[in-house]
């Protein structure tokens, strides 16, 4: 956005999230560098989605702050394209694939403005990029899981931003969709975009990504895949359970102390 001096796309300071039903995310302190493909890995319940949602302001923070291109998160949020988990919406909603992609443009439109021809053009191009243009007028419940995921990706593309946060885009998609997503991710990196992806399949991390964040309630490791994606770090992430931490988290929640003033 500002070419002269570049603040990092996303900076997270001392972020702690105390959730009602889940444990918590403790003291996350990280700066996502520009132009990287970042995999966010960790076991179930490690807080991967929570981290993304916290950055997007969808869950309340107990403490800490998020900066987007050096601005407070509230102002900077429109600079991030967010791809939520597929189950987060009602796919029976009466709307077409193209229409969903067009929703990605809503952030760019004035209050009562309607999408213009240019917005439609962008939406079509985005659909084309994910190989879904022929399904543009299909109702979304008639798409397969992989196709729905591609529509979500296209919607993020239509936002035309430089930062993408994706919550498990590879979950339950077919092989061709997976391939299409990987091609897309690489393209985005070539354009200098920053993409952080919650990812479950550890096997493919070195192949698809260049940077990895290992998360398990706290940040275990963050850095280039070659140096960070080590057996030792993985053991630390997936191995030793932090029973004490979880228990204390529960206690915090129960004592209504979750909101730190």
């Amino acid at each position: 956005m500002s070419p002269a001096e570049k603040p990092a796309p996303i900076e997270v300071h001392d972020l702690t999230v105390a959730y009602r039903h889940r444990p918590v995310l403790w003291d996350i302190d990280v700066t996502l560098p520009e132009g990287n493909l970042i995999a966010i890995c960790g076991p179930n319940g490690a807080g991967k989605s929570t981290l993304i949602k916290a950055i997007m302001g969808l869950v309340p923070l107990a403490s800490g702050k998020v900066e987007i291109f050096g601005k407070p998160a509230k102002q900077g949020r429109s600079l991030i394209a967010y791809v939520p988990q597929r189950e987060s919406v009602d796919w029976d909603f009466p709307t077409t694939a193209l229409d969903v992609v067009l929703m990605g443009r809503y952030g760019h439109l004035p209050l009562f403005g309607r999408p213009r021809k240019r917005d439609r053009e962008i939406a079509r191009q985005s659909l084309e990029k994910v190989g879904m243009l022929e399904f543009a007028n299909r109702q979304i419940s008639q798409l397969s899981g992989g196709q729905q995921q591609r529509v979500f990706l296209a919607r993020a593309l239509a936002q035309q931003t430089r930062v993408y946060l994706m919550d498990e885009p590879f979950a339950g998609v077919d092989a061709s969709t997976e391939k299409a997503i990987v091609v897309l991710l690489r393209e985005l990196r070539e354009q200098g975009c920053t993409v952080a992806v919650v990812h479950h399949d550890l096997q493919s991390v070195p192949e698809y990504f260049d940077t990895v964040m290992l998360l398990n309630l706290r940040m275990v490791a963050f850095g280039p895949v070659e140096s960070t994606f080590t057996t030792e770090n993985l053991n630390k992430t997936y191995g030793g359970r932090l029973n004490l931490l979880t228990e204390v988290g529960e206690k915090l929640r129960k004592s209504e102390w979750s909101a730190r003033q």
Binding site: M56, G57, Y82, V89, M103, F112, R114
Partner: peptide, 22 residues
């Protein structure tokens, strides 16, 4: 007519709606 896009987006995907500042 005026709020079509906000109504639609907040109905379909409140998460995205909040993220784009609605």
């Amino acid at each position: 007519g005026l709020g079509y896009k906000q109504l639609k987006l907040t109905s379909f995907d409140p998460g995205l709606a909040a993220a784009v500042g609605i």
